[in-house]
């Protein structure tokens, strides 16, 4: 088990190094000089020179890369050019919206999808299965930002139960903040839940046809008992992968939803940074997101080993 975790951790470290190189290179290849790019075409040469100095662009590639990575590791993400505040501060502030939103949406989608997927699998080939599968097809096909607009039209414009957007901040009270995140979370969760329910269903159906399910039935377990004791844990293995991928997607993929609801989250930060050419923010936040994805992948690999004993002693 320890060896398995260590090997995975090593591969996590390697991926991070490669990813940081890729991101660094990506920012480097952006046409023209980052400083003049950030300031636009009509910038004064003095301003450009000053910014270059500011950004440390006058050093060699290697020192700049090492400075950046070294900064990342000590929590120094640089200073945002447009906001004039440390990027780390910005990110922390935005994470207070994005992280709860991602978790909220993921929680919703998991809580809905797993029972629904199980139910559909149990009713395979019957009307209720077809109905659920049809509904999930629709759920996948609806663009989440459009669904968000529909939610706004219904719950904010018509019924006036929720506000159409904005975030009061956690200081205004937990429930108020959660309420502001509800419509965005529902909009984000719907397609995710649809995908997850389908994965759950097909994974469970796969497992239900395994030989060991027949063995369990031959021992005297009812279908429900056999499903509970033997199928679920095996069926959850692929579901886990999808949940992990969805978490990372929700963290960054909320960009558009955050725009619909005017939420001051990480996605909106990076979107604005890109459009305002604030490359310091872009570079560091993208790295942070990649780190999150790789970390989640690592955690899922470890979770695999917990669920599946076959992985523990291999390698």
């Amino acid at each position: 088990m320890l060896r398995y975790v260590l090997t995975r951790a090593l591969s996590l470290g390697l991926s991070l190094v490669v990813a940081s190189l890729v991101i660094f290179a990506m920012i480097e290849v952006i046409p023209g000089d980052p400083a003049s790019f950030m300031l636009g075409l009509n910038a004064q040469p003095e301003a450009v020179a000053a910014l270059r100095d500011d950004l440390g662009l006058n050093g060699s590639l290697v020192t700049r890369y090492l400075d950046w990575v070294g900064g990342l590791m000590t929590g120094d993400f640089g200073i945002s050019y447009t906001y004039r505040v440390p990027v780390a501060e910005l990110v922390l502030e935005r994470l207070q919206v994005s992280l709860p939103l991602a978790l909220y949406a993921l929680g919703l989608s998991t809580l809905i999808a797993i029972p629904v997927g199980m139910f559909a699998a149990a009713r395979q080939g019957r009307t209720s299965d077809y109905a659920i599968m049809g509904a999930t097809q629709l759920g996948i096909a609806i663009p989440n930002f459009w669904f968000a607009m529909l939610l706004v039209m219904l719950f904010a414009v018509q019924l006036r139960w929720f506000s159409a957007g904005g975030f009061p901040g956690w200081d205004e009270g937990f429930w108020l903040a959660m309420k502001a995140l509800t419509l965005p979370a529902v909009a984000l969760a719907l397609p995710q839940a649809s995908i997850l329910a389908r994965v759950m269903r097909s994974s469970l159906l796969d497992v239900l046809h395994q030989d060991y399910m027949r063995t369990a039935r031959a021992k005297g377990l009812s279908i429900a008992q056999a499903t509970r004791h033997h199928a679920l844990r095996n069926a959850l293995i692929p579901v886990l992968t999808i949940i992990g991928l969805q978490f990372s997607f929700l963290l960054a993929g909320a960009i558009i939803i955050e725009n619909v609801f005017f939420l001051p989250g990480l996605g909106r930060l990076i979107f604005q940074a890109i459009t305002q050419r604030d490359l310091v923010v872009v570079e560091s936040v993208v790295m942070l997101l990649v780190f999150a994805v790789i970390l989640v992948t690592f955690l899922i690999d470890v979770a695999y080993a917990v669920v599946d004993p076959r992985l523990r002693r291999r390698r």
Binding site: A19, I30, G253, I274
Partner: peptide
């Protein structure tokens, strides 16, 4: 396959936005 995993690790939408915003 490692190259594949690496691309998967990048937030697709963010990179797409970065590419379209840059170019």
């Amino acid at each position: 396959m490692r190259g594949n995993d690496l691309i998967f690790a990048f937030p697709a939408l963010v990179i797409a936005i970065l590419i379209t915003a840059t170019f």
